[in-house]
Amino acid sequence: MAEQVALSRTQVCGILREELFQGDAFHQSDTHIFIIMGASGDLAKKKIYPTIWWLFRDGLLPENTFIVGYARSRLTVADIRKQSEPFFKATPEEKLKLEDFFARNSYVAGQYDDAASYQRLNSHMNALHLGSQANRLFYLALPPTVYEAVTKNIHESCMSQIGWNRIIVEKPFGRDLQSSDRLSNHISSLFREDQIYRIDHYLGKEMVQNLMVLRFANRIFGPIWNRDNIACVILTFKEPFGTEGRGGYFDEFGIIRDVMQNHLLQMLCLVAMEKPASTNSDDVRDEKVKVLKCISEVQANNVVLGQYVGNPDGEGEATKGYLDDPTVPRGSTTATFAAVVLYVENERWDGVPFILRCGKALNERKAEVRLQFHDVAGDIFHQQCKRNELVIRVQPNEAVYTKMMTKKPGMFFNPEESELDLTYGNRYKNVKLPDAYERLILDVFCGSQMHFVRSDELREAWRIFTPLLHQIELEKPKPIPYIYGSRGPTEADELMKRVGFQYEGTYKWVNP
């Protein structure tokens, strides 16, 4: 592979701008107003304001973009700056750019259920340069409990009458099928589907988006991507930290609602779906819905739930269990780990287990898709061969690698495990991989909904998990304890083995 010439960040961002501006969906010269509902909250200060700053800094926003914060707290732009700027990672050389960014910011205080507050917000936006005809993007960085009041008031008082209007809704989209349907029906009564952007930030990850290209742009994968060759698929999300004093919020939802029903299920769809007619948003989402419709409700015998306990040999936070978090209700049975087996009941995947695993306070930070292939028929190497695996590593250190057998150097035919490896950090030294939120917010500006969740996708996802969630809430089974920093409950490994996964433990990928 030829040595790549190092590029400056300015040059890299210039390439990104060229890609972005050559499309006809990006209205570079139009006025846009980006409204952050819930501007005083954690999500706004840690993710949304920093993301908008990065896009502005790199010249990736339309030229005439204004940012308006809205929340109940009586704040000023200076207050917003004070709480969000520490997350910007701005350099001293960017000081003038930073001043320009905050000059485009404003803030309006108001209630979430008060019509007069929204009329005041609308008047404020109209007073901005060309504000009355601007395109408006409303980001709901809010708890779902206020979605209905907020969307109703936005629709009645704050819509642009000339430009387009788009609304970005953060997960969780309800707690179960019934609450999700209620919320979807409410929002759909106010906005068209092409105006609604239900954001799952995992769909903005580079390697998640790469799944489609790997599958449908490489001839070698087509013939082997089926039940005849693939023994099982494992989708993993692991965090090495616990709730760390923020367990009160987590306890309301648990690990299945927080990660599995959305992030992991979306990745499953991209692995299992048929080739779409095109890369058009609805063509892709149509195929994802077909996959979900082929999955039956989760069966309790295919589920393992766990909850982390303190590690007596650990240090600091590792010595504390979930129930030691003062914000967690006493005696909570909320799971911090889950392993679930699903089956896609169609011709391509009949009988292939899709194993979804996620948890907190585990032994490493990792998100990946792992396809394990069947054993080689007619073994001539005296059971020395391990199964081939194709691994798409989402985070950290984005990579695609194939675990395969090669001859060990020497005189004899002794096979050993090795890999074919594409590590993004080595291959793409001159490429700026956008943060997931950067990519998705740019998608909203461009009107691309491919990486957002459609209402029928959402409904099918909740259909699969709601009976299990209701059973857990009714019966309150005690989750299996696992030690902070471990791989999780051993019962999860036993479940995976029972459905056909072979864990060798003899080879570990190392970032080159």
Score class of each variant (00 low, 15 high):
F21C: 11
Q133R: 15
P172S: 00
P240V: 08
E63H: 14
I196F: 05
R175A: 09
E18H: 12
L130T: 14
A109C: 12
N126Y: 10
R198Q: 01
G14Q: 15
R136I: 07
Q161E: 14
L7F: 15
P240S: 12
S40M: 03
Q111H: 13
S179F: 03
V108M: 12
R219H: 08
L142R: 03
H155Y: 14
K47R: 08
S123P: 00
E99D: 15
I52F: 08
N165W: 05
R246A: 03
T91F: 08
W225G: 02
N165V: 13
D100S: 14
D30H: 11
A127E: 15
S117E: 11
R166I: 02
V146W: 03
H124T: 12
R104L: 10
H27M: 12
D24A: 09
A6K: 15
P50T: 07
F34S: 05
S40Q: 04
Y107Q: 03
G247E: 08
D58H: 14
I230S: 00
S40G: 08
R104E: 01
L121W: 01
R227W: 05
R120A: 13
T76K: 13
S73H: 05
R120W: 11
G110S: 06
A6I: 15
I255W: 02
I220N: 00
L142N: 04
F87W: 12
G242D: 05
F221I: 08
L61C: 07
G222H: 10
T65K: 04
R192L: 12
I230H: 04
A141Y: 03
N229W: 02
F221C: 09
V146Q: 14
L43N: 00
L60A: 06
L7K: 15
D176L: 00
R136S: 09
A90K: 07
R215D: 02
S123V: 15
H201R: 04
N105M: 11
G38Y: 03
T243H: 02
V146E: 06
P172F: 03
E206F: 09
N153T: 09
Q209R: 01
T51P: 00
V233G: 03
L203I: 01
V169K: 02
F253H: 06
I187S: 05
L75F: 12
N165P: 03
Y107K: 01
A25L: 07
F253Q: 01
C232R: 00
H186T: 09
Q161V: 12
I80A: 06
F253K: 01
E193C: 05
K89P: 05
R246N: 03
T10F: 15
L177T: 11
D113I: 09
S123K: 15
E239C: 05
N126R: 13
W54A: 06
G245K: 09
H201L: 04
L235Q: 02
N126M: 13
N218E: 07
K152T: 10
D24N: 13
E63F: 11
H155D: 12
G110M: 02
P50N: 06
I167E: 00
D30L: 12
T236N: 07
T243L: 08
R227M: 08
T76G: 08
N105D: 00
F101S: 02
Y49T: 04
L98H: 01
R72V: 02
E239V: 01
E156K: 12
Y139K: 04
Q119A: 12
F216R: 04
R227H: 10
I230V: 12
H129P: 15
V213C: 14
I255M: 12
R74A: 15
A44K: 02
L235I: 13
V68W: 03
V208P: 01
P86M: 09
G204W: 02
S184T: 15
R166M: 04
T236A: 06
E63K: 14
W54E: 09
G163I: 00
P86E: 10
I52M: 09
I255V: 14
W54G: 08
P92F: 11
D251E: 06
E206Q: 09
Y139P: 05
G248P: 02
A44C: 09
I255D: 00
H201F: 04
L214R: 05
G222Y: 09
G247M: 06
P50C: 06
C158G: 10
G204N: 01
F66W: 10
K45D: 02
P223Y: 07
M212H: 00
R246M: 02
L130N: 13
R227N: 09
N153G: 12
L16V: 14
S180M: 01
F34D: 04
E99A: 09
G254Y: 01
W164K: 07
P50V: 04
T243P: 09
R215L: 04
L137S: 07
N135T: 07
H201I: 03
A217P: 02
A44Y: 03
S29C: 15
A71M: 03
H124D: 12
T65I: 11
K205V: 05
N185A: 11
T151Y: 03
T76W: 06
A149W: 11
I224G: 07
D24V: 11
Y202I: 02
S184V: 13
F173E: 04
K238C: 04
R74H: 15
I220P: 03
E94G: 03
P223L: 06
E19M: 15
F216H: 02
F237N: 01
E156L: 12
E19Q: 11
T151P: 03
D58L: 10
A25T: 15
M125H: 01
R81G: 05
A78M: 11
Y107A: 07
N185H: 12
R175C: 11
G14C: 14
R57T: 02
L16M: 15
Q111A: 12
A78G: 15
Q119P: 12
R219T: 09
Y118H: 09
D251G: 05
V169W: 03
R175V: 06
F221S: 07
R166T: 00
K82F: 11
V169R: 02
Y197M: 00
L130G: 15
V150F: 00
A44D: 00
E19F: 15
R17S: 15
G38R: 05
G248K: 04
A44E: 00
K97W: 03
T10Q: 15
R72K: 04
K238I: 01
G131W: 07
P240Y: 10
E148Y: 08
N185D: 14
K171F: 04
H186Q: 12
L61N: 03
D42H: 01
P144M: 02
K47C: 00
I199Q: 07
Q22V: 11
E156G: 14
S40W: 04
F173K: 04
G245L: 10
S184W: 05
I230L: 10
Q111Y: 12
G174D: 00
L98P: 01
D181Q: 10
I35T: 10
F253P: 02
D113Y: 14
Q178R: 13
D24M: 09
A44H: 05
Y147H: 01
D42V: 00
R17T: 15
Q133P: 09
D24E: 10
